[in-house]
Amino acid sequence: MQQPSSQQADLFALDQQRVLYAELCNAFYARELQRLSQHLEPSGDAARVARMLASLPYYVERAAFHIVRGHSPLTLDGQNGSWIAKQATKAPVPDSEKNHAFYSRFAQIGMLVPVLVAQQGMQYVMLDTLDQVSSNRVHCNQSGWFDLQGQYQDSRIQHQKVTLLWPGKKHFTPACCGHRWQQYKVTSPRTLSLREMLLTTRINWKNFRQPLPVKDT
């Protein structure tokens, strides 16, 4: 007996999800193994690499699952494991007033935030999370301390300038897609780390103040 069209559509959608999931897993494995191979130097930390390899399947499958099951306005390139969107001609320009207006009211632990990085003539936006919040500054998990205007207040990062941006589509889009600008001109996008790809799945595109909850597969 022929199945109803609604069931056929459901089965077709499920098959598409399975194919996409497999493509993403393959892309993430290839990417992370290449990255880990760079640590396999005589002076590298073999124990650390071994731990990373042991945890790799969990994070690869988790990222692929949440991307397949998530909802994003961006276009997904499953074969390369990346997000695609039209790139602005110029990098985002920090706005200290907007930063202060946003973070003085809405900053909270666990919030996803965009950080503008400038290094050796290259600019790009990376994803980070707030893990500490005080009355006059916030701390990002990877980047360190910023005041509420977005200015860097830490000394850990050398040879590059980082500025906190306020959460919004115009800042999250280049962060998710790896957009870069070199000498103020558009250049090829960077490849996001597996951690950053996982963070992209937590962006609440309908309310940037409330990231999606962390869920296991």
Rank of each mutant, 00 (worst) to 15 (best):
R209W: 02
P114G: 05
L11W: 03
S6N: 14
Y184E: 13
R31N: 08
V60D: 11
K215V: 15
L127S: 11
S134R: 09
L212Y: 09
V19R: 14
E23Q: 15
A85M: 03
K206L: 13
Q151D: 13
S104E: 09
Y59N: 07
N99D: 04
T129I: 07
A47Y: 06
Q160R: 15
G168K: 04
W181L: 02
E196K: 06
Q182H: 07
K169M: 12
A50W: 00
Q182M: 06
Q7G: 00
H139M: 06
Y58T: 02
K206T: 11
V138D: 07
F28I: 11
F208S: 05
L127R: 13
L192N: 07
G70I: 07
V93P: 02
T173K: 10
P73D: 10
T200G: 06
K161R: 14
Q34N: 09
P167S: 08
Q79D: 11
D216E: 04
S55M: 04
S5T: 14
A47T: 00
M126C: 15
K215S: 12
T200N: 08
Q8D: 08
A13I: 11
L76P: 05
L53K: 08
R48D: 09
P174Y: 03
V117N: 06
G110V: 08
I109T: 15
S135W: 10
Y152L: 10
W145C: 03
P174A: 02
S43Y: 01
R62H: 13
R195P: 02
D147L: 02
